[in-house]
């Protein structure tokens, strides 16, 4: 394992530690979505996935 991997691992640990309180705060304070809200999220994400598959076919 070279020093770049060690630095990358340490940086990721630091980001996780910094983001953890923000994640807890967002979980507590985010409003609950209805099934219709979740559908309005899932549909565009599915389109993005299909688009990436198209890009893979093109390359």
């Amino acid at each position: 394992m070279d020093w770049m991997q060690i630095i990358a691992a340490l940086a990721l640990v630091m980001f996780i530690v910094v983001l953890l309180p923000r994640t807890r705060h967002m979980i507590k304070n985010s409003p609950k979505g209805t099934s219709s809200d979740w559908m309005s999220f899932v549909i565009p994400i599915a389109v993005v996935v299909l688009f990436i598959i198209l890009l893979i076919k093109l390359v």
């Binding site: 996780i16 994640t23 967002m26 985010s30 409003p31 609950k32």
Partner: peptide, 19 residues
């Protein structure tokens, strides 16, 4: 549309990706 309900879900997903 208001996507504020995604906040917690996306942050948890992002943390899992970092892990």
């Amino acid at each position: 549309k208001d996507f504020s309900f995604l906040g917690g879900f996306l942050m948890v997903g992002f943390l899992l990706v970092l892990l």
